[in-house]
Amino acid sequence: MKNVLSIAGVDPSGGAGLIADLKVFIAHQTYAMGVVTATTAQNTQGIYGMDLVDTKIIADGIKAIFDDIKVNAVKIGVVPSVDIIKTVASSLQNLKDSGKLPAVVLDPVMACKNGDIWLEGDSKKAIVEYLFPLATIITPNRFEASEITGIKVNCVDSAKNAAKELLKLGTKAVFLKLGDIDGKSVDIFYDGDEFLELTTKRLDTNSTHGSGCSLSSAIAANLANGLSLKDAVKNAQEYVFEAIKTAPLIGSGCNPVNHFYNFYN
């Protein structure tokens, strides 16, 4: 069994964040581990508060995991302050320098369906500066890609242009979640050599809370299990599609996806 680590915030409703990541890892038959960056007051209707975890315990947590356990992939989610971003980046850079850094999937979380993620100060710039160069692949949505690149991402061509610009910032590959294009859900994968346009049926549903977190976690689990980048993103997209399609009604707002659909079916 492969081991996957999530470095992310906690959504107590379990729909997104670290709790959702752990569900995805388990669904992909990997051993799930997590280092918490922040705790939130959150449900399917919104985000009502956030407290940040002390940077020392974050650094110590990452070090403790790698000192003892072979980590096959890392997923990074919410890193809500410059200090936390620098702490995570420093920890991963030390691992890279020692040859111990596995594949890193970075979800540059700047906004979610339940409302804005509360990033402090220059955190958005810091994510790009400090974490992009350590990432094997990043998974921005169209709005995050637009904010980072300055390109208005609203079609396939603009998404491809944004992906090219994102790759220049240090990451090895990009999976851009474009979203609804002419009634279909479209994602763009780019690794510097080729573009892959991935299209699925557009589902008429409100059960999409945590779908972005789950996608990046699924990519990480697939990479840990030995899949190529291209196959990892293809399988992750298929997993999230089925998770959305089979989602049960949990709350009264934006409902979470069904992480364990393959268990129940």
Rank of each mutant, 00 (worst) to 15 (best):
V88D: 12
F263D: 14
S146I: 04
N235F: 09
Y190T: 02
A224K: 07
F241K: 11
T87E: 11
L167C: 01
V88Q: 09
L134M: 07
G115M: 14
S6F: 00
I151A: 02
I57G: 08
V82E: 08
C254T: 14
I181K: 06
V36N: 03
P80Q: 01
E129G: 05
I151E: 02
V74N: 08
F263S: 11
L249D: 12
H259S: 00
N154T: 08
V79K: 06
T200V: 09
A236M: 11
A243L: 09
G192D: 08
C112I: 14
L5W: 12
V74K: 10
K56R: 11
T30R: 00
S185V: 10
G46N: 12
D51Q: 14
E194I: 09
I250A: 01
K172A: 11
T149S: 05
L92Y: 09
D193A: 06
V109L: 10
D97Q: 14
K160S: 05
V128D: 02
R142I: 10
L196K: 11
S6Y: 02
H28Q: 01
K201H: 12
Q237M: 11
I250N: 04
E147W: 04
E238Q: 14
T139H: 10
V78G: 06
T55L: 05
A236N: 07
A20K: 03
K56G: 06
G179P: 10
N255E: 03
V82L: 04
N206V: 13
D11V: 01
A41E: 12
F132D: 04
V257G: 08
K234M: 02
I151V: 07
D60S: 15
K86M: 13
H259E: 00
G170V: 00
I151T: 01
N206G: 12
F132L: 05
C254E: 15
S211H: 08
S91E: 12
T149W: 07
T200R: 12
A135H: 09
I65M: 13
I148T: 05
G170S: 08
Y239W: 06
S6G: 04
V4G: 02
F132Y: 11
V78Q: 06
G192I: 02
M1A: 11
G61W: 12
R142F: 12
I19Y: 00
N206F: 05
G192R: 10
L18A: 13
L169A: 07
F25Q: 00
N72G: 14
N225V: 04
I127E: 14
L176D: 09
M1E: 09
D83S: 13
F132G: 04
P102D: 01
I58Q: 06
A20W: 03
K184Q: 09
